[in-house]
Computed example of a mutant assay.
Amino acid sequence: MTTLVSVLSVTTVAGLATGLGALPVFFRARVTHRVYDAALGLAAGLMVAASVFGLVIPGMEEGTLRAVMAGVLLGGGALLGGNYLIPHLHAEYREWFAEGGATADDAAVMEPPAEDSLVEPDEGTEGSGAAGEGPTDEEKGILAERESSLRKALLIGGAITLHNAPEGLAIGVAFASGLNEVALLLAVVIGLQNVPDGFAFAVPMAETGMSNLRVVWYTTLSGVVPQVVASVFGYSLVGLGSGLFPLSSGFAAGAMLAVVFRELIPSSHGHGHADAATGAFLVGFVLLVVVDAVVVV
């Protein structure tokens, strides 16, 4: 019988793989937009295949089609609802886009500060405040708001939770239902997917001027924390009733699919590298099938 300790251990290992994706920040000059888009495509292919083969099909084998499809709709709806209600910053390569109530100032704080942003105006030149007096009280207030580390943490944490929680939920649900092979398959796939996912998170984070070591540390936490918490929730949820797996598996699958089509695919297209992203998507999908066959055998 699978214990909660086993669930925590497996999910933690899968989450730690996110940190591997941040290692290229040490060579950030070599990171190209094509590589970034391809990484997102690879992650999308893995997640789509995992949703179908690791969650939807096993859910239908354990329960009814109606229950699984209801779960898919509920999971997708919950992700979209959270995306609308939870203020967060959505990263696209070296840019940040505010969503869910986040503002343009919130996105601006993630950009590296300009070297001359606080140059004092010379006497006789136009500028804010009198010559030599520095920024006005209003400008100081804006700068203080932009430098709020708590605000940054909340906004980034909202995006991380929306993206990674469904994956941890899927592992916990599978383990709680006694489908250990399915759970291990999901853990392997999610671990593989977390590498490009971590890369996608680390690149814009590194552009804020944060040190490389901190980027790697925060990127690793971004995979471990929400996935572990969600896995415990999923494990506990199914434990409340043996018949909840079909609905829960559908819910996790729907949330993961919503992440793919709401975030990963749009972020990997429109920059002139759609072919690279599409090719990587297919590679990710095929890789899941291969891993599935190895785990089952």
Score class of each variant (00 low, 15 high):
T2Y: 09
L4Y: 12
V5I: 13
T11L: 07
A17L: 15
T18L: 05
L23H: 04
F27A: 15
R34H: 11
V35Q: 14
L46F: 15
M47A: 06
V48N: 02
A49N: 08
A50Y: 06
S51C: 05
F53E: 10
G54T: 06
V56R: 05
I57G: 04
P58K: 09
M60I: 15
E61P: 03
R66S: 12
R66P: 00
A67S: 15
A67G: 03
A67L: 09
G71I: 03
G71F: 06
L73K: 02
L74W: 08
L74G: 05
G76F: 10
L79N: 08
G81N: 09
Y84M: 08
P87M: 06
H88T: 07
H90G: 02
E92V: 15
Y93E: 08
E99A: 14
T103S: 15
E111V: 03
E111A: 15
P112Q: 12
E115A: 15
D116T: 11
S117D: 15
S117Y: 11
S117W: 12
E120R: 12
E123D: 14
E123W: 12
G124P: 00
E126L: 13
E126S: 13
E133R: 07
G134S: 09
D137L: 13
G141I: 05
A144T: 11
E145C: 01
E145S: 10
A153G: 02
A153I: 07
G158E: 00
G158I: 04
G158V: 03
P166E: 10
E167A: 10
L169M: 09
A170T: 02
G172V: 02
G172M: 03
V173K: 00
A174Y: 00
A176H: 08
S177Q: 03
G178L: 00
G178P: 00
L186V: 06
L186H: 10
V189N: 00
P196V: 09
D197R: 03
F201M: 14
V203C: 10
P204R: 08
A206D: 14
E207S: 14
T208L: 09
T208Y: 11
M210P: 09
V215D: 12
S222K: 04
S222W: 06
G223A: 09
V224S: 00
V225Q: 05
V228L: 13
A230F: 01
A230M: 04
S231Y: 02
V238D: 08
G239M: 01
S248E: 02
G250K: 10
A253K: 01
A255V: 00
A258G: 12
A258D: 05
V259C: 03
V259I: 12
F261T: 08
R262M: 07
E263A: 11
E263G: 01
E263F: 12
L264W: 10
I265Y: 06
S268F: 03
A276F: 10
A277K: 02
L282G: 02
F285S: 11
V289I: 14
D292N: 13
A293Q: 14
V294N: 04
